[in-house]
């Protein structure tokens, strides 16, 4: 079985990444990055990770302004100024890269540190624009995003499964965000679901061994489902539930070809 993850470098440019993602057998690309221990803003990130889980959409703010907002609120005014600036610079560089993936409006950037259990279930991200890609850079989590090809999903069973589970998973995500409670406790009354989320073995998967993991420290880019094209099926790992890391999510969407 061919691995559906292609490796590229930030320096190779967004054009190279886009060409790889347009290759039918490629579901995601991996851009190697140093581990958190080797990054200059590690102490800042770890301080954020010690706080209760949160999420923040930048909504057009610069990374510097958005990080200042969250840092001042959580860690106190002026904390980790230099490290914060270094992380903002790194996010800005990824934003520039994401912008190169399409010709649309500026990408949307968000960060979060809470664990969304819905991510444990194979899913595609969706937007309404014509083409879209999502870039994910997790800092400080033990397992990488997993991907599987679309033909490894029994589509009828998947639709039936998601009709039942999608709103329930959305509610579960919200409860985890608001209460910080453990998934196992919140869904103790749903042992079969919990078992699937723990093991990654879902009833709509054709071959459970046909899944691949992005390196946990790498930046990844995957396709987002649009009215014009399919998205990449992906999921998080149960291993991440206790330490989801700081996840930097950048979505580049465009109505241009």
């Amino acid at each position: 079985m061919m691995k559906p993850i292609a490796v590229t470098a930030l320096g190779s440019g967004a054009g190279a990444a886009r060409r790889l993602l347009e290759t039918p057998l490629v579901e995601a690309i991996e851009i190697p990055r140093p581990s958190l221990d080797e990054l200059p803003f590690r102490d800042f990130v770890r301080a954020l990770l010690r706080a209760p889980g949160f999420k923040l959409d930048f909504r057009g703010q610069t990374p510097d302004a958005a990080l200042a907002l969250v840092s001042n609120q959580i860690l106190g005014p002026g904390a980790f100024q230099q490290e914060r600036a270094a992380l903002a610079e790194a996010i800005a560089a990824l934003e520039v890269f994401a912008r190169g993936l399409g010709a649309g409006p500026p990408p949307q950037v968000a960060i979060r540190t809470y664990f969304a259990p819905g991510d444990l279930v194979w899913h595609v991200d969706r937007v309404s624009e014509r083409t879209a890609f999502r870039l994910l850079w997790p800092l400080g989590r033990p397992a990488g995003m997993k991907v599987t090809p679309a033909d490894n999903i029994d589509q009828r069973r998947y639709r039936g499964f998601m009709r039942r589970e999608f709103p329930l998973l959305c509610q579960l995500d919200t409860r985890v965000l608001h209460t910080g409670a453990a998934v196992e406790a919140l869904w103790a009354h749903r042992p079969a679901q919990l078992a699937a989320m723990t093991s990654g073995r879902f009833p709509f998967i054709v071959d459970p061994d046909k899944e691949w993991e992005i390196d946990p420290t790498a930046v990844s880019v995957h396709r987002v489902e649009t009215p014009a094209g399919p998205g990449t099926y992906h999921r998080s790992s149960w291993t991440n539930r206790a330490s989801p890391g700081l996840q930097i999510v950048i979505t580049a969407a465009s109505d241009e070809q």
């Binding site: 009828r156 069973r157 639709r159 039936g160 499964f161 009709r163 039942r164 079969a192 699937a196 009833p203």
Partner: peptide
């Protein structure tokens, strides 16, 4: 019947 997929498989037992 669409319910075959909705209840498949563990959910039917539960």
């Amino acid at each position: 019947d669409w319910r075959r997929d909705y209840f498949f498989n563990e959910h039917l037992r539960e």
